[in-house]
Structures are given as structure tokens and as C-alpha cells.
Design a binder for these strands. Structure first.
Lengths: 197, 197
DNA sequence: CCGAAAAGTGAGCAACTATTCACCTTGCCG
DNA sequence: CGGCAAGGTGAATAGTTGCTCACTTTTCGG
């Protein structure tokens, strides 16, 4: 194996470990799998990390530390309808493109890894807070009911999207409806206009 | 250990195994744990089941076979508002009382146990179909917008509830909003009335 | 161009785990 | 009562797995 710098090799180990853990969970991944996924020997893995657990932690910690805002600023210039559709589409497409970290996070949560709730507190709640802030912006502009609980709306809307993603990628439910057209925009219109006659 | 009938002992093994698998997943549960949870020796476990996997399958299969309707008939006599709140409350309370099977199912889904998608197809989709049927009933009565996609609404509403439960029980997110009052009824009112000004 | 430091590895080891085996115990029926 | 089928177990086994050790290969500053 070609020699790499410590940092570069470490990154490759982490990247490989992410797909391995995402596929089989922490306990289901053997150090041999980590080695194969990273393209190195098992021994080298343990030169970079004291043990298996530390690799999983490093993966989640890296994501916790990741900076940057969830919502692009342009959303403020759109109508609530268009903005929510953009958010929904983005969530669906991100999961479609790469459900890896989502799977890893669910595994970690079930396996009682403390960093999973931590990730939720630091990142997910933060992102949902951004959605809530956008909703409050709409309320101020009179585009959304003044009485709306922005935070609860943000959690409900994002949870709905999140669970649809989970149900699709983990439990294989593909068709939510027989009608044609983009489900994202139809879900958004339910949230916006309500379902009452 | 007191002698029991084959059936009774089998039931106790399954019950014990359910909490063990729910807590630690399939791979995280050792046969020793199954034995301890059932209060018997390891050897006896394998007199009842050919292997560990078969126990997990038995648990899920039993739930798949469980009969009975999800929604009580009385819901048809309530207003949509009250009925949806009743459904939401029931989902939240069921998860609060016993998140065991939910955890087991998520573990199984992530670990690629084929019975997890099967359970979704047979039971969850069925239950959500009942919700959709109720919504169609309201549409016929003119209580709900004629143009609504009942199936998509049912999936969205139930997914929202489901994810809020997951987020609470697996990722420890307890507060969805600072406002007082029952979140169930406030979520329902968002779905019913929409959020537009 | 050389030698130390850093990158990298094959071959284990000790501990663990699913399953089996040989055997004991209980309750029941003739 | 006696014997036997069914319920039940402690101990062994074969395979696995996280991690270490002793060692080789590459890199690179002086």
C-alpha cells in the first residue's frame, strides 16, 4: 500500500467506516470489514484509532462539528409554498443520493451511542430551528397565520419528511399514493392550505 | 426450573427475546441474554428454536399475523378534528407505554431482516389504509376538501406522528415547542386548517 | 545517500458466542 | 408404583472477533 500522510489515511479510514457502519451497524461491522473498506490492513486501523468505538464517534463528531447553514438565504425571497417545496425536495434528494449517514445515525441511536442524541441536539434541532425562523419571518409578513406555533410546525413538517424518507429507505415503502405528480408539492399544499373543506 | 408446556415456555422465550432484541438489536443480543430474559438455560432456547434468527422472525411474524382493526369504529361518529386527535394521542401513548416493538422493528429494518419491510407492507400500510378510508369517508360527507389525496394525507399524518415518536424515544428530543397544551391537538389543527394566513 | 521516523502489514492471541451433547428431572398414564 | 416421554440443564466445541506484536517498507531532512 502506498504511504499516505497520517491525516489523509485517517480520512480514508473514516470514510470507509462510515459506509460499513451504515450498512451493518456498529456490532455488525468487524474490524476486518473496516480494513477492507479503507483498503488497508486491520493493524493500521488501530494505529489511527484506539478501538472500533472511537471510529464511530469520530464519524458522528465530525458531522456535529460541520458548520454552515441548512437553509440557503434565497428561500426568504420565495413564497412559502415554493420554499417548503424546495426544502422537501432537498430532503428527499439528499436521502436518495446518500442515505449512508442517516442509517448510521439510526443504528447509533438504537445502540444507545450517546453521540446520536447529541447530534440531534446540535445539528437537527439547529436545522429545524432555521425552518422555524423562516416560518416566523413569514408570520411577520402576514403570509402565515399569526397564531401558528412556528417551532411545532417546523418539527412536524420536517418529521413528516424524515419519516417518509425512513419508510422508503429502511422499510422499502415506495408508493405513497396512486396519483401522479410530485409528492413534495402535494404534501406542502396539505400543510399550507389544510385539508378542511 | 418448574416444568411448563412447550407452548407456554415458547411464549415466555419469545416475550423475553422481544425486550432483549429491542434493547440491543439482533447482533447485540447474545444467546445468554435470551436465556436470562426467559429465565431458562441457553440449551433450552435451542430446543424451541433452531437458532437465534428464528426467534426474531417468530416475534415479527406473530405481529404480522395479529388481526383486528387499527381504528375503532366510533371514530366515524366524531368530527375529523376529534378523530385525528384521538389517533395521535393513541399513537403517542402506545409508544410511551411500550416502545419495545418499535425499537425491534427499526433494528430489524436496519439490519436488513426481510420481515421488517414485510411487516410494513402487511400491517403498517394496512393501518394507514384505514386512516385513508376514514378520510375518504369525511370527503364524502363534505367535511374535507374533495381534491385531497386521502392516501397521501394518511401517510403524511401518520409519518409525522411516527417520526415525532422516534425522535423522542430513540434520539431523546423531548420538547417540540415552548407553548403549553397538548401537542397532539395542535398538530392536528395544523393539518386541518393549514398554516396560511 | 543514509538512517531515523513514520507508514504499513501478516500472523497471531485471548476472549467471546452460537449451538450441540450427554445427561438429569418431572409429571403423567397404565 | 414404575417407566418413559417430555421438560430442562451444565459443560464442551468450533468458529469468530477486537486488538496487539514483531516486523518490513517507504519517506525525507541533513
Amino acid at each position: 500500500m502506498k504511504h499516505l500522510t497520517h491525516e489523509e489515511r485517517r480520512k480514508r479510514i473514516v470514510r470507509g467506516a462510515m459506509s460499513a457502519f451504515a450498512e451493518s451497524g456498529f456490532r455488525g461491522t468487524r474490524s476486518r470489514d473496516l480494513a477492507r473498506a479503507a483498503g488497508v490492513s486491520e493493524a493500521l486501523i488501530f494505529k489511527h484509532f484506539p478501538n472500533k468505538r472511537a471510529i464511530q464517534r469520530a464519524i458522528i463528531e465530525e458531522r456535529i462539528r460541520q458548520t454552515g447553514t441548512f437553509l440557503p438565504a434565497e428561500l426568504r425571497e420565495m413564497t412559502p409554498e415554493k420554499a417548503l417545496v424546495a426544502i422537501a425536495t432537498r430532503v428527499f434528494e439528499a436521502a436518495e443520493r446518500d442515505p449512508t449517514f442517516m442509517r448510521l445515525l439510526y443504528f447509533a441511536g438504537l445502540e444507545s451511542e450517546p453521540l446520536a442524541p447529541m447530534f440531534f441536539k446540535r445539528r437537527v434541532s439547529g436545522n429545524i430551528g432555521e425552518v422555524a425562523a423562516l416560518v416566523r419571518f413569514w408570520i411577520r409578513r402576514g403570509l402565515v397565520r399569526r397564531s401558528l406555533d412556528a417551532r411545532l410546525f417546523a418539527w412536524s413538517f420536517m418529521s413528516c419528511l424524515g419519516q417518509l424518507v425512513v419508510v422508503r429507505h429502511i422499510f422499502g415503502v415506495k408508493r405513497l399514493s396512486d396519483r401522479p405528480g410530485d409528492p413534495a408539492s402535494r404534501i406542502v399544499s396539505m400543510f399550507l392550505q389544510g385539508v378542511k373543506a
